[in-house]
Amino acid sequence: MSANSRLTIAAHALAWIGLYQRHGHEVATSEQIATSANTNPVVIRRLLGELRRAGLVESRRGVGAGWSLAREPSSMTLLDVYEAVEPGPLFAMHRATPDQGCVVGRAIQPTMRSIYEGIEETLRRELARVTLEDVIRDVLAASSAASGNARPVDYFT
């Protein structure tokens, strides 16, 4: 079973758009974002479509087409992003009902459901504490530290 990267890619795209806009650009293209995320622009467009439906980004068509943030980074939490791109529960139960005649089979789902609800509550609480502004700040700090510069490299000029 592989880990899901949708939240990470969505946060990457939003942080990239936010920084790009801070450098005076109105919109970012999915191709630009995809280059940074090292993925296909179609993946970025699909995620951005979900983020648009959630009111986190806006898109412009035609000449000067692209994506922009619909809200200030300080008002957008990772929980907002998570809920936009991960609509279902984090964990799932069996596809078929376990054997109700078995001591484990009849009790495993209520037991695991309780555990999963606690995990999801903790996850949501933690994601709600972190804004996109926090992510951008930490990205810039990590970028500066990784490059050995006192200031972040100006990637957008």
Rank of each mutant, 00 (worst) to 15 (best):
I17M: 10
G118P: 01
Q32N: 08
M93K: 14
R113K: 06
G101H: 06
A15L: 11
D138R: 07
L79S: 00
E58Y: 00
G66D: 00
I17P: 06
L47K: 07
A13V: 01
Y82R: 08
D134F: 04
E117N: 09
E117F: 07
I33K: 11
R137E: 10
Q109N: 10
A141T: 15
I115Y: 06
V130D: 05
A128G: 04
T122W: 09
Y155W: 12
L127Q: 03
T131C: 05
E120H: 03
L90G: 04
E50V: 02
L132A: 04
E133A: 13
R71P: 02
S74R: 15
R53C: 03
T29S: 06
E121F: 09
A150S: 14
P87D: 02
L79Y: 04
L14P: 09
L19Q: 15
R129Y: 02
A3Q: 12
A13D: 09
S143R: 10
S36Y: 12
R124P: 03
A34F: 06
R106H: 13
F156E: 02
V130W: 02
W16C: 07
W67F: 12
R60K: 15
L7Y: 05
L48H: 11
D99H: 07
L7C: 01
P110D: 01
V103D: 13
V63K: 13
A10L: 07
T35Y: 11
G101F: 10
G62I: 05
R124T: 01
L123W: 04
E72Q: 08
A65P: 00
E26K: 03
P87K: 12
G49R: 00
R125W: 11
V130Q: 07
R95L: 15
T77P: 03
M112Q: 13
Q32A: 13
T8D: 09
L47M: 08
W16M: 09
Y116F: 14
H25E: 07
L69M: 06
T8R: 10
H12I: 03
G66H: 00
A15P: 10
